[in-house]
Design a protein around this nucleic acid. Structure first.
Lengths: 350, 350
DNA sequence: CTGAAAGCGCTTACAG
DNA sequence: CTGAAAGCGCTTACAG
């Protein structure tokens, strides 16, 4: 029952500094109407006493909570984990706490969106990796919290994400430039997050890049799978089985994990990478370096950091400072390693 | 400024139910001294009105926050991410919120341990993957919060983790039983988390398993590296270079990522796995399945779930119910896939 | 079993 | 520029 372990309150600071509670509060909050000298005195006292504000009291009294909710699916996956990593780093340096809500399934989402709004627990929410449905947007709007999207766009919220079409072009154009014309694609989608439109940018890029070469897309070379390396492995096998006499010379996978799955199947079928088949992914997953996978790099961590900054800016605006945050598109970059090369024919020609 | 978006308070429920604020509070909190009928009436009213308690008010008034802090390093790594996944799943079903604190460096830790205690923001803290130093234990004790350790033991806190020695024995014994006697080991440690003693259990197991066969450990076959596949790749190269005429016939890596790094070097040196060298890891990382890696399986997610239950039990005890949580050792299991086999000699003998 | 009252630590009109 | 006072939504002695 040793509840209060020595932590002192604002009134302690006020008394010690010789001012009223009101003034102490204003000084600490940079409110208007406090002389410079008084403010300095209060700040110094607070510092000396190691005073730390009680977020709960602030919230109850109508102030900000200094808490932000992070709504994220599949936190165990590299991309999301790295976003969280970057996010927490800058959020904590701004003295903001992070409430984590994992929403893998549709049920989780419903639960989150119906529960959070009940009592405002946070000042802002960061939605990672999935689009917010119209009804969910309404609930969020009702709360009056600031919202930021990371790893994708959503509604009109400020966002940070890569340009999926651009990333796709970087990957497929690389294959095309190498001389490939028979290029397979393994596209991914998350069955629990239907309607995520961004991913399709990668598919559009594939179609365009190939069309630019005057070739029609051969649907038999395209597979759409649930997320996961194993599914990609099956998809690759399925493609190979469908065109035994005329296999693709290259594979564009929507992600590195998918690419790794495809490579596994290729190896099992006795095909060499890249001699027989080139493979490229997107992400630059930590394992991509370990497996010498050619890929299109993106930094999830940096996107997390940017999302945090977007939140901080939005909070500042609300507090009457700064300007509304603008969305940012994170850069992507082709990283040629050892899983792509010129197709056989091209080599022979040399 | 539309602050309160229709969320109603306990007094609304009390009025509606025709009881006092006090009684309403007691009914909702299962406190003693409320007739069954009154309690039922209050509960029904609260339900009907969609009442949700304000955690901040509760906390301020001296109640519980229903928040738990998770202190975890490297959340982007599979093991930690999966622990978080399991943890959030059961915590949220118990209506507990999770505050995430990432502590990768020593500076992060200092920051966390000095800041959190200032104002109790949580009822419990789950420490994942690193030991709590004595001074940190003191700060935590001062807060009067419940503490649970996951992914390792720490002080006298209830914990959930695997038996590292046991896991190590399962891995090395497998190699020994296959007929290997020249077994290398790539051990890992996190430079940012010195003093984590659990890992050494894996090393002890290596020594014992080999000694049990009457063989002395050859230090030239052992490397201790910073966490990460690339470091393991270098370590493997270093081992091979050290004993060019008498290379190991098997490698025991402390984790799957390390094992994958070792395999990469083996392949680059033209060595086949498992024909020339067997490799085994520990974890059963998602990629282990994709790479057919033989390993010792452990479920990080399950450990996360168990940690959450430990927290819930501890909170119940504090509320006067249930019994103190007991620590649990999560099971591990050898999973033979395709990276281990009998050594050449043994094969020839057959 | 039930209720009136004080208090948790702040912020914010409202008056100087 | 500064302060006394009310109130945020709860819990918990203290009295019935």
């Amino acid at each position: 029952m040793t509840e209060r372990s020595g932590s002192l309150s604002l009134s302690d600071v006020a008394r010690e500094a010789g001012v009223s509670l009101t003034t102490a509060s204003r000084a600490l909050n940079d409110s208007y109407g406090v002389s410079a000298s008084t403010k300095a005195k209060v700040l110094a006292t607070a510092q000396r006493l190691d005073y730390v504000v009680s977020p709960d009291a602030v919230r109850l009294a109508g102030g900000r909570t200094r808490r932000v909710a992070l709504v994220v699916p599949h936190i165990e996956r590299w991309f999301f984990g790295d976003i969280v990593n970057g996010l927490t780093a800058v959020l904590s340096s701004a003295d903001l706490d992070l409430l984590l809500y994992q929403v893998d399934s549709a049920a989780d989402r419903l639960d989150f969106f119906t529960r959070l709004p009940a009592r405002r627990k946070v000042d802002a929410v960061v939605v990672v990796g999935f689009p917010v449905a119209p009804r969910e947007q309404e609930r969020l709007a009702l709360m009056g919290v600031d919202i930021v999207a990371a790893g994708g766009q959503s509604a009109d919220y400020p966002y940070v994400c890569i340009d999926d079409y651009q990333a796709g072009r970087q990957a497929v154009d690389h294959l095309v430039e190498l001389g490939h014309s028979r290029i397979a694609m393994i596209a991914a989608h998350d069955p629990d997050q239907p309607g995520w439109p961004a991913r399709s940018g990668r598919s559009e890029a594939y179609v365009d890049a190939i069309a630019a070469k005057g070739i029609d897309v051969d649907d038999v070379l395209v597979r759409d799978v649930d997320w996961g390396g194993l599914n990609a492995a099956s998809a690759m096998a399925s493609i190979l089985d469908a065109v035994p006499d005329n296999p693709p010379t290259a594979v564009f996978a929507h992600s590195d994990e998918l690419a790794l799955g495809a490579i596994r199947t290729l190896h099992r079928r006795g095909l060499r990478v890249p001699e027989d088949v080139s493979v490229i992914g997107i992400d630059d997953h930590p394992l991509a370096e370990l497996t010498d996978l050619t890929t299109v790099h993106q930094s999830a961590r940096e996107q997390g950091r940017i999302a945090a900054r977007l939140v901080i800016e939005a909070l500042a605006v609300r507090a009457g400072a700064g300007t509304a945050p603008g969305s940012v598109t994170a850069p992507t970059k082709l990283l040629v390693r050892s899983t792509t090369g010129a197709p056989r024919g091209a080599v022979r020609r040399g």
